[in-house]
């Protein structure tokens, strides 16, 4: 029992990082029905931006978090502006290939600059607390707390603000929203910025939790978050979070009982299984035809 509870904390930690990344995939899919395959690599760069920043000035964790989120937000809007926007009305396949290409460019540029995995320095004093036999670290509290906090902020932004209304309207009918005076391109750019900044935050948190940073992270971890978004129903924010926590739990439990080499096999099998029964994901709705 105690063992299970301990694993649950680990699952929450992994799940919340997946959730932050998955939200970025889902937001972009929501507004453009496009899979932003470069998003995993934005996540990876989040960790590298943090390394770079600390190498220049040793700032405290909160400052690093804000700077990294700002930097990845800018990166996200640049990708949207120069790689995706020119292809907005091109065939779907062109956009997907561009996104994949964008991801590979980011990944291989990083690989060129930093061919080897690097250790992430400590940003926090990691204190270990004991609660009735359970071990919780400062790091775990921070990771889960920051993730949940950011998700709540995002939820508020989407459901309660005029930006959020406009974003949901763009998702439902981009052409009509422009005719109501809403600058759809601006809304799409802000959506990319927010998604990328969450991905960047996830990169930093992941680097702190599993303190080795490498250029391949975008694929190994980022795509897993994409799986989480699809499991939850891509385009649906709450679905992304749900899928992420399910995936985090499944992975942690798999590693607890099976050799860790089975982890990805189980995750991707879960994806296939869920899609057989729920092709739109757990919370996704079948999309209606758009005029």
């Amino acid at each position: 029992m105690k063992y299970l509870a301990q694993q649950a904390i680990n699952a929450l930690q992994l799940g919340s990082i997946y959730a932050l990344i998955a939200l970025g995939y889902s937001m972009v899919y929501g507004v453009l029905t496009m899979i932003n395959f470069a998003h995993g690599d934005v996540f990876m760069l989040g960790a590298f931006f943090c390394l770079l920043l600390i190498a220049i000035v040793p700032v405290p964790f909160w400052v690093a978090l804000i700077v990294v989120m700002g930097a990845t937000a800018i990166l996200g809007t640049l990708i949207e502006r120069f790689a995706y926007r020119p292809l907005r009305d091109a065939p779907r396949v062109s956009a997907i290939i561009t996104a994949l290409g964008c991801g590979l460019v980011i990944q291989n540029t990083t690989l060129g600059i930093s061919p080897y995995a690097r250790p992430m320095p400590h940003l926090l004093d990691n204190v270990t607390y004991q609660f009735g036999g359970l071990t919780v670290t400062t790091l775990q509290i921070i990771i889960i707390g920051v993730s949940v906090g950011l998700m709540m902020v995002l939820d508020f932004l989407i459901r309660k603000t005029s930006f959020g209304m406009a974003m949901r309207a763009v998702a439902s009918d981009r052409a009509t929203v422009s005719l109501l005076g809403v600058p759809a391109n601006e809304i799409i750019a802000i959506t990319f910025a927010i998604g990328a900044s969450l991905g960047g935050a996830a990169g930093l948190l992941y680097g702190m939790a599993y303190p080795v940073v490498s250029a391949g992270m975008g694929i190994t971890v980022g795509w897993k978050a994409f799986v989480a978004a699809v499991i939850g129903g891509i385009g649906n924010m709450r679905g992304a979070v749900l899928g992420a926590f399910i995936l985090g739990a499944v992975e942690v439990m798999t590693v607890a009982v099976l050799p860790s080499t089975y982890r990805d096999l189980i995750s991707y099998s879960l994806l296939l299984l869920i899609l057989v029964f729920k092709p739109h994901g757990l919370l996704g709705k079948p999309t209606l035809h758009k005029a």
Binding site: F156, L157, K160, T161, S162, F163, A166, G181, V182
Partner: peptide
């Protein structure tokens, strides 16, 4: 509100 609000600049930061 979407139509009404489009007269105003969108600032997620302000809103947050």
């Amino acid at each position: 509100r979407i139509a009404y609000d489009s007269q105003l600049p969108y600032s997620p930061v302000d809103a947050l």
